[in-house]
Design a binder for these strands. Structure first.
Lengths: 349, 349
DNA sequence: TATTGATGCGGGAACGTTCCCGCACAAGGC
DNA sequence: GCCTTGTGCGGGAACGTTCCCGCATCAATA
């Protein structure tokens, strides 16, 4: 007689031994039968499978993980915007990065768990994480060091300074900006302005340096407007400052918006300030926002390739996990300029 | 002498017994010391903690889960758009729903794992899921039944027809639409048009019925444009159809866009077709898009409250999990109309 | 008929933790 | 000085798998 369950509402889950007893076999045999391993006669194998099917057996994932020594679970943290946690998904860049990371990992049998920005030990200590992806880590964030100290491999979409166990994928900020500026110049721009976040990430530092070098090499005036905080409001304000600021060096004839903003809002701001795009102003937005294809005129964007970054990065991470290597490694992913109407100077006056 | 590890690259993780041996105690005592349980002298407790700290001990989460009988892990699937998996995060509604779900769950000690739309058994079978949240399930999707058959509690942000083990939170579509239409009428609208997805979700069916009833009760003409697929392009096209279609019943003087689209693009489409908002057309968008606050004029939105839905729903789910009850339960969350300039008729001509 | 080898299946340890006990010892009551 | 009560700690089972073995059985060979 088996013991009757105390709580009628909780049917006790069927285990491997239950199936074994039902089929008149041992748990070893049933395990081998279900996993397709071991040396078993076809008849016994089928008998075990039949019993498992009939009883609705589902293996306990936790027990498997314990035996296997790993959980095939990857943490995912966004380092930026720690002051406003969980808003990152509303940015197209992070939305695509997150989705592509989860999709790629899952294809290789790993699941992705969402972790809050600036999370304490407490938050992930109880999770059996095989690795953690830190998206856009801010310089000097504790979490990267905490994770590495705990022996958990860290992976990032930004170049992480050579710490053992930290791997990364990144886009070449300098090359990307130079490409965009060259395109604008080729279309006739002589006074390209720029809108840039005030944050001190490595990426934005690279963008700033590339812009200055590019202007200096061509003896062109610099015009930079910084945004205090992320979000459409501050970025639009910075766009207006860039377009209407001091007139001494002449009005800008091109604008490169590196901060993430909605392309139609940027276009509207330009119009409001007396610019007709692309006649008076060539516009390029660093953005993954799909609305860029639907504005009038359509908006040229510089894509940082979040999906590609996530795909390449996750594959690299999987390789590191499977092979168990520990030395730091990194990969560069090229950015992509999608030229549309907003940055093409009309040929006829 | 302890065995030397074969692979020099893999330092074997320190276990509870290692700490116990080091401290000259038993694993039972160390476990109690670290967890703050049991009857221990302060001296022994501190000795165990010191040893654990010194050796960098971190408990094995998987072993704990096995002992505890649950993993504190919640799956998260988006049922809609199964044809284009992982794009859901780019929608502000789902981005906010996802973020708020993860944040609320984590506050209660549960982690959220991202699962693909239309996922097979294979994808989640190897995960020790305590429950699964299915966002916006399409009618007749296999996954809900599969999960329930596997004994995994299911939670949804849409009313799930009374299946045992399925819980839900939803917004009242009829009340929301009536509220928006009443507001438009109060501002002077007499011929409100509507843009609606062609999809057959329960929510959209409710919206359609509410609109027809409302128009019929006031003897006002109906004008509905359906969008074939989600995305800004099709929705904008539907907006143009709604505004320029057959002229027999007169041009619409108000527009309620229920399909998710970028508010600035909708405004631009209205302008392109000769409407000045709000003078010629009162506009309300069902949207969570933050850009609505930054358009000129600012855009009135009807919010479906994804963050509130996620918060209430996850709390409900936690309660169900902790108490172990199994009967279906549901909660309604009120929507919210954020009235801005686009739907306020200018007082003076 | 004995010896080998292959085949088919099961016993039991291990993964790392928590928790139910039981045992030793000290202190208190009569 | 004996029985009771309480305190402090440890032994060992259990959670549900997988996997390393070993033990039968049977065919093939010497």
């Amino acid at each position: 007689m088996t013991e009757a369950p105390r709580r009628p509402g909780k049917p006790p889950r069927v285990r491997l031994v239950d199936v074994a007893r039902e089929a008149g076999l041992s748990k070893t045999t049933v395990s081998a039968a279900l996993n397709g391993t071991g040396r078993l006669s076809p008849a016994v194998r089928e008998k075990a499978r039949e019993a498992a099917r009939r009883m609705g057996y589902r293996p306990n994932a936790t027990a498997r993980q314990l035996r296997a020594g790993r959980a095939r679970l990857i943490g995912y943290v966004v380092g930026e915007r720690a002051h406003a946690p969980w808003t990152f998904l509303e940015s197209p860049y992070f939305a695509q990065l997150t989705g592509a990371t989860a999709a790629t990992a899952l294809r290789r049998g790993y699941a992705v768990v969402l972790l809050p920005a600036g999370s304490l030990q407490q938050e992930w200590a109880d999770l059996p994480l095989d690795a953690v992806v830190v998206a856009d880590p801010v310089a000097g964030d504790r979490i990267v060091d905490d994770l590495l100290a705990a022996g958990i491999p860290v992976f990032s979409d930004r170049s992480v300074e050579g710490r053992a166990g930290a791997h990364w994928v990144d886009v070449d900020a300098s090359a990307a900006i130079r490409g965009a500026l060259d395109h604008l110049r080729q279309e006739g721009a002589r006074r390209p302005a720029m809108v840039l976040p005030g944050s001190a990430t490595g990426f934005h530092a690279g963008v700033l340096a590339a812009y200055r070098d590019w202007c200096a090499a061509r003896a062109l005036p610099e015009r930079i407007a910084h945004t205090a905080t992320p979000g459409n409001g501050p970025v639009i304000a910075a766009v207006e400052r860039a377009l209407t600021g001091c007139e001494k060096s002449g009005r800008p004839d091109a604008l490169l918006v590196v901060a993430e903003a909605s392309p139609p809002l940027v276009l509207e701001a330009a119009r409001r300030n007396g610019y007709e795009v692309p006649r008076d102003l060539l516009l390029v937005c660093v953005s993954e926002d799909m609305t860029a294809e639907h504005t009038r005129p359509t908006t040229t964007t510089l894509s940082l390739r979040p999906q590609e970054v996530a795909r390449v990065g996750t594959e690299l991470l999987m390789a590191v996990l499977e092979e168990g290597r520990t030395e730091t490694s990194g990969v560069w992913v090229p950015s992509r300029l999608d030229v549309r109407e907003s940055s093409r100077r009309p040929r006829s006056g």
